[in-house]
Design a protein around this nucleic acid. Structure first.
Length: 255
DNA sequence: ATGGTCGATCGTCGA
């Protein structure tokens, strides 16, 4: 069983990369972020031709999330209970006996910006939703683009970055609150090293210089932790022509 | 040098 996440930065542009990666990696479940497509434009047929069912929650120009799976996703949720939000950033579905919550966390722009306040509020609402979901679904995976670096190992120049956006204490506390709901950062079950990133800016040849951040995470409940055998960042698609600025991340389980 | 690069959209914003 393989579960993956990828911020594709426009599914329209990146569909050929997604198709190539699905063919090579063969994940059972993959969560996508930044599809930037309204639901009527979602490439259902092309995805079906790859052997995947899809559920999606999109909007024009911005945001947009989707879950692809070889088995039919069911019990789909597209909104955080109690949060009236037009931005399409969350998608929950059950595949087999695994509950999947796909997140495209608010970027936040800068400390003090109104988008930063929205980010923290959005995360607090997500935490409450995750706490309710984990009570109902012991096998829970919460994955996506978190737009938070959990600790300094996840930043290419932590001294220079300091406590700026993605690394501020309130953001890190919000991520820790999610983990405290009963989740584990699957990558860190297998790798303690600094310098493993999932996103690199398009500018300044950042990828070639490995000037990146680890912001794409796969968080898993206790029941899945005991079955996890690997959790990796697949940098290969970042080297392809016209890539997403994010690499896919993938978890393997013996289930 | 207050920039740089993408994507959506078509001047400018978001990341």
């Amino acid at each position: 069983m393989k579960i993956a996440s990828w911020n594709v930065n426009s599914l329209k542009v990146r569909l050929p990369h997604l198709q190539q990666w699905l063919a090579e990696a063969q994940p059972d479940i993959v969560a996508l972020q930044e599809t930037k497509l309204t639901d009527d434009k979602f490439p259902v047929d092309e995805i079906a031709a790859m052997g995947y069912r899809a559920v999606y929650s999109g909007q024009k120009t911005y945001n947009g999330v989707a879950i692809l799976a070889k088995d039919e996703p069911r019990d789909v949720v597209t909104d955080i209970p109690g949060l009236d939000d037009p931005q399409r950033r969350i998608l929950a579905a059950t595949v087999g006996d695994i509950r999947v919550i796909d997140l495209y966390v608010v970027n936040g722009k800068a400390l003090g910006d109104e988008k930063y306040d929205y980010k923290l509020h959005w995360l607090s609402m997500v935490r409450d939703f995750v706490a309710a979901e984990i009570a109902r679904h012991p096998r829970l995976v919460v994955l996506g683009d978190f737009n938070i670096c959990r600790d300094d190992r996840d930043v290419y120049d932590a001294v220079a970055w300091g406590e700026d956006i993605f690394c501020s204490p309130p953001e890190r506390e919000a991520l820790q609150a999610l983990l405290d709901a009963g989740l584990h950062d699957s990558f860190r079950l297998f790798n303690d090293e600094a310098g493993h990133f999932s996103w690199w800016d398009y500018r300044q040849a950042a990828f070639r210089r490995n000037m990146g951040l680890r912001i794409d995470l796969i968080l898993i409940s206790d029941a899945l932790k005991s079955a996890a055998t690997s959790s990796i960042i697949d940098k290969a698609p970042r080297r392809w022509e016209q890539p997403s600025d994010h690499a896919p991340v993938a978890l393997e389980l013996t289930l």
